[in-house]
Every structure is written in C-alpha cells, then in structure tokens.
C-alpha cells in the first residue's frame, strides 16, 4: 500500500472521494504534536475559566487537527466544517470538565472530535444519505494531495513510519476505523476477517503504535 494512512478499501459503501478535489489553499502544517500539546493544556485551563482570548488561541492551535480529522472521516467539506464547529463549541462548553490527570488536552479534544465525526457518519448512514451518495470507486486513488502536502511534515512522517511497523491486518483495522469511521464489524466485513480477530488486531495495532510513537505511559 502506498500510504498506510490511506485505507485501501475505505470507500466501500462510503462517500468515495468527495473530499479529494479542490483542497483549500490554506492547508497549514499540523505543527509538532508536543509543542501544540503543551500550548493546548495551558490554553484549555484558561478557557475553563471563561477566558475568550485563550479560547481564541486554543482554536488556532487545535482547529486544523480537528478539521483535518473531521474531513478525513466525514469527507464532505460542509459536514466537516459543521463537525469542527460543533467540536470547538463543545470544547468551550466542557473545558472545566477536562481533567489533566486523565491525559493531555490535545488528546481530549481529538477524542471529542473523532467521536463527533464518527457519530455524524453513523447518523448519515442511518439516514441512508451516505449510501445514496456513494459512488463506487476502485482501490486506486493513490494520488492524495493532502497526504503529499503534509507528507514532509514531522508528525505525519512519524505516524506514517510507525503505521508501517504494524502488520497488514493491524494497520488496516486501525486506519479503516480511525480514518474511515468504520465499526470493527464493518472493518471485519471489509477485510474479510472475523470480528473478534479485527478487534484484537485493533488493540495490538494501537499498542504497537503507542510504543513506536513513544506515547507517555
């Protein structure tokens, strides 16, 4: 597979490659995860005390990761924007509920973002809209403007490298779920493996990623 972050069979029954065309020109570097992580911790603390300027600065740190993730998962640019907006408002609302002892601010925000994006996809699926829009594409589409744009960047490169250390099934299980917004049962369908195997591979894959990325334990 040319890019481990681009799940090969992602578009099975999905919205295909709606998001690939016309990338916005203002795509900006994700920045170094650690630096923005520390920024985010401090800014979220101030946001919790109602500091709107801190929230503004927090927005500048986290909006691109949140939006990029939403874009990956929901694909539709307008929906991705809505999800980003919802997530940022939720961050403002719940800032005081964030507990630094339970992980970094960035992880907290990205967890909210992913959940929102996936909820959105599942609701769309339930509403049948996603199927109605689905275009059946092959597994080609190796060309990835976003990927190429950020490829040289540090975080992208690290994650890419670490994803390569996973077995094929681990990698597919993790990326189809995370970037594709698929449930483990759907992933099992897509890769033709038993659901129990897939969920085990998801856990093993994340453990391997965690160790490779040096996520604090």
């Amino acid at each position: 597979m040319s890019d481990p972050m681009r799940p090969r069979v992602r578009n099975a029954g999905g919205t295909a490659f709606r998001g690939e065309r016309g990338m916005p020109a203002e795509t900006r570097p994700p920045g170094d995860g650690l630096v923005s992580g520390q920024d985010a911790d401090a800014l979220l603390g101030r946001t919790a005390r109602g500091d709107e300027r801190a929230f503004e600065a927090l927005y500048d740190v986290v909006a691109a990761p949140v939006h990029g993730l939403a874009r990956r998962v929901v694909r539709d640019p307008a929906m991705a924007e809505e999800v980003t907006q919802e997530v940022m408002i939720e961050v403002w609302r719940s800032a005081a509920r964030y507990d630094p002892e339970r992980g970094g601010a960035m992880a907290w925000i990205m967890t909210i973002a992913h959940r929102r994006a996936v909820d959105r996809v599942r609701r769309e699926q339930a509403a049948g809209e996603r199927e109605a829009r689905a275009v059946h594409h092959g597994t080609g589409a190796a060309h990835d403007p976003v990927g190429e744009r950020v490829e040289a960047r540090l975080e992208h490169e690290r994650v890419r490298r670490c994803l390569r250390t996973l077995t094929h099934l681990q990698r597919e299980s993790v990326t189809l779920a995370y970037y594709g917004g698929h449930s483990y049962r759907e992933v099992a369908e897509l890769v033709g493996a038993p659901p129990n195997t897939v969920r085990t591979r998801m856990r093993d894959g994340i453990i391997r990623l965690r160790d490779c990325l040096g996520v604090e334990r």
Binding site: P30, A63, H67, G68, V159, L209, R210
Partner: peptide, 15 residues
C-alpha cells in the same frame, strides 16, 4: 486515546 489522537494530528488541515 493519546495514541489515536496522534493519528488525527497527522492529517491536520486548516478549516
């Protein structure tokens, strides 16, 4: 969750 967050950070794209 800290690990999966990194997967997200890697695909950042400004809104």
């Amino acid at each position: 969750q800290a690990t999966t967050a990194r997967l997200g950070l890697a695909v950042a794209e400004a809104p």
